[in-house]
Simulated assay, not measured.
Amino acid sequence: MKMMAILCLLVSVLGLVSAMPLVRLGRRHDPPATPIHLQFGLDPDGSYHCGDKIYSGHEIFLAAQYGINLLNADERRGKELYPQSFDDGTESRGIKFPSYCPANSMRYEFPLANGLPYNGGPDDTNTGDERIVFFYRNGDVGFDNHPVGSFCGIVTRKGAEADGFVLC
């Protein structure tokens, strides 16, 4: 009788555990790859020299798309939590962005990477020297209901003052 009770309890517990959703610890999910519109000046077929690297227009676009999709999912990547605001007095360091990229909390930076967009872990400090800078106001959408952001430029730490950037 006692053995039967233990067996019933074990079957009940196993049934509950098997009904629980599978969660993979330590694995983040990418945000949805929602298409975006990136306005102003980025040629997706072009190539851009920045610092000591060359990035395709497509790689730069993908970084902006990933960054905007992270913002919409209220997520960040890497130890520095990208995308992060890029409104920290950059004008005083000689960087002048177009007027459609004002220095406020809606102008963001996101690391550039060759190939796939940056997707650093919580301890990742290897973000490279180059960033895309884009302006995005949450809720701005185009005619097709996809997010609309503005390309402000790309920047690098190469040749900049300590903790600063220069426009590429």
Results as ranks from 00 to 15, higher is better:
residue 101 C to A: 00
residue 145 N to P: 02
residue 113 A to H: 10
residue 120 G to P: 01
residue 11 V to I: 14
residue 76 R to V: 12
residue 80 E to L: 14
residue 24 R to S: 15
residue 55 Y to A: 03
residue 91 E to C: 06
residue 51 G to W: 07
residue 45 D to P: 03
residue 71 L to Y: 04
residue 13 V to Y: 04
residue 145 N to I: 06
residue 50 C to R: 06
residue 110 F to Y: 15
residue 30 D to E: 14
residue 98 P to A: 13
residue 50 C to K: 07
residue 114 N to C: 05
residue 141 V to G: 02
residue 31 P to V: 09
residue 131 R to Q: 09
residue 58 H to M: 08
residue 60 I to A: 00
residue 117 P to S: 09
residue 49 H to E: 15
residue 48 Y to N: 02
residue 19 A to Q: 06
residue 20 M to S: 12
residue 124 D to A: 08
residue 85 S to T: 14
residue 85 S to H: 10
residue 28 R to F: 10
residue 99 S to M: 00
residue 98 P to Q: 09
residue 136 Y to R: 02
residue 31 P to I: 11
residue 95 I to Y: 03
residue 84 Q to W: 01
residue 127 T to F: 11
residue 124 D to P: 01
residue 12 S to N: 06
residue 145 N to S: 15
residue 50 C to Q: 08
residue 66 Y to P: 03
residue 150 S to Q: 10
residue 39 Q to H: 14
residue 127 T to I: 14
residue 122 P to G: 00
residue 14 L to V: 06
residue 146 H to Q: 15
residue 52 D to S: 13
residue 136 Y to V: 04
residue 98 P to G: 09
residue 137 R to K: 15
residue 36 I to P: 01
residue 61 F to E: 01
residue 147 P to R: 02
residue 16 L to M: 07
residue 117 P to F: 07
residue 32 P to Q: 11
residue 113 A to Y: 07
residue 115 G to L: 14
residue 122 P to C: 00
residue 100 Y to M: 02
residue 36 I to F: 03
residue 131 R to Y: 08
residue 103 A to T: 09
residue 60 I to G: 00
residue 121 G to M: 04
residue 122 P to T: 00
residue 114 N to Q: 15
residue 70 L to I: 01
residue 49 H to K: 14
residue 58 H to F: 00
residue 83 P to T: 01
residue 29 H to V: 13
residue 133 V to T: 08
residue 67 G to E: 06
residue 65 Q to V: 05
residue 89 G to S: 11
residue 72 N to G: 12
residue 58 H to A: 11
residue 148 V to L: 09
residue 46 G to W: 05
residue 128 G to I: 06
residue 24 R to E: 15
residue 84 Q to T: 11
residue 39 Q to I: 11
residue 138 N to F: 10
residue 24 R to H: 15
residue 23 V to G: 01
residue 82 Y to K: 02
residue 142 G to P: 05
residue 84 Q to H: 07
residue 145 N to G: 08
residue 127 T to P: 03
residue 23 V to F: 10
residue 151 F to A: 03
residue 56 S to K: 03
residue 142 G to K: 02
residue 101 C to G: 00
residue 150 S to A: 10
residue 124 D to Y: 03
residue 38 L to R: 01
residue 139 G to C: 14
residue 133 V to H: 03
residue 85 S to E: 14
residue 85 S to M: 09
residue 135 F to M: 12
residue 85 S to D: 12
residue 59 E to T: 11
residue 81 L to I: 01
residue 96 K to D: 09
residue 68 I to W: 00
residue 135 F to K: 12
residue 137 R to G: 06
residue 143 F to N: 12
residue 34 T to H: 08
residue 77 R to Q: 11
residue 125 T to W: 08
residue 13 V to N: 05
residue 94 G to K: 07
residue 58 H to C: 01
residue 139 G to E: 12
residue 34 T to Q: 14
residue 106 M to I: 05
residue 89 G to W: 06
residue 18 S to E: 01
residue 98 P to I: 07
residue 35 P to C: 10
residue 102 P to S: 01
residue 111 P to R: 04
residue 126 N to E: 14
residue 78 G to R: 05
residue 85 S to G: 09
residue 19 A to I: 02
residue 23 V to E: 10
residue 46 G to Q: 06
residue 106 M to E: 12
residue 94 G to Y: 06
residue 128 G to E: 03
residue 138 N to C: 09
